[in-house]
Amino acid sequence: MKKSMKCIGLFIVSVLMLAIAGCGNDKSENASDSAGSGDKTDFPSKAITMISPTSAGGGTDATARALAADVEKHLGQSIGVVNKPGGSGSVGMTEGANAKPDGYTVTMVIAELTMLEHMGVSTLNQDQMKAVAMINLDPAALTVPADAPYDTLEEFIDYAKEHPGELQVGNAGTGSIWHVAAESLAKNADIELNHVPFEGAAPAVTALVGGHVDAVTVSPAEVKTQLDAGNLKTLAIMSDKRSDIIPDVPTFTEAGLESETIATWRGITVPNDTPDEIVTILQDAFLKAADEEGFKKFMSSNGLGIELKKADEFNAFMDENYDYYKEMFAELGLGNK
């Protein structure tokens, strides 16, 4: 009796094994998404999946969910946000790049897309995806405790020159965008800073409030609460124009130091072979949604900046980013090739 059970068990197993062999030609590792072959003319005819390459609860996730809710109105189809965290976003974005190119799987991409290759984490870059629209951009903001002995960028640099290597600047992890920002500040101002990496921007800000580091270079969204509470002050932002979140703070250039725009950003992409007419439909829907009052209110209450770019501008922007980080990473000796 027992033996026959075993045989049956093994039989079932072998049937299942055959099933695998039968579909062995399919290379996709994870085919969870509801993407299907839709008719191009009546796009979209069914629900769309949006991949968020971060875990539930983060700023990217919140942005994706808030945006999805508004885009639904313009596309007439529901959008489900799926979190695929891991590998600095490479897991989710790679899956987005390899999805069926029919427009039913879109990906919320983050600045890391143009950095992963230089970091040595993944071979993914922006060329493997087709840009749809850019939604948000948050520049690095040099922020210090409210009682720090410097009130301007110039005074900060002077202080750093008098105390070389003593100023501790917290960032969101080695090789993260905020680390690059601090390194770029050190390079442009010719000062020596001690870079302290944290697991993300929030712990770095906590350490700044606790007085364990002297400055952070993270986005205004991350420090907004503490700015409002009067615990911190932002000296300048690394952008070519002022931020809507903290309009009183000057840009680096205004404060007397030439600087590139160093910012985190979020946008929408689709797989490379997606037909152009579908990209256009998506682009228009996403840009309209990002202009809705509800979305704007959500973004501003979270300290997130809205920056809209159409597909071609977004594409050019990503290429520019890619080249800049390539140079920057080589210069800093980061990356692991």
């Binding site: 059970m5 079932i12 197993v13 299942l16 099933a19 579909c23 399919d26 996709s28 085919a31």
Partner: peptide
């Protein structure tokens, strides 16, 4: 076997088959 076939025949079919096999086993 269950885990290996999920990407191809999906979670629902494979789960039903697996639970059936395990019960039978």
């Amino acid at each position: 076997a269950y885990i290996l076939v999920i990407p191809y025949i999906g979670f629902y079919v494979s789960t039903a088959l697996t639970i059936f096999s395990l019960l039978f086993f």
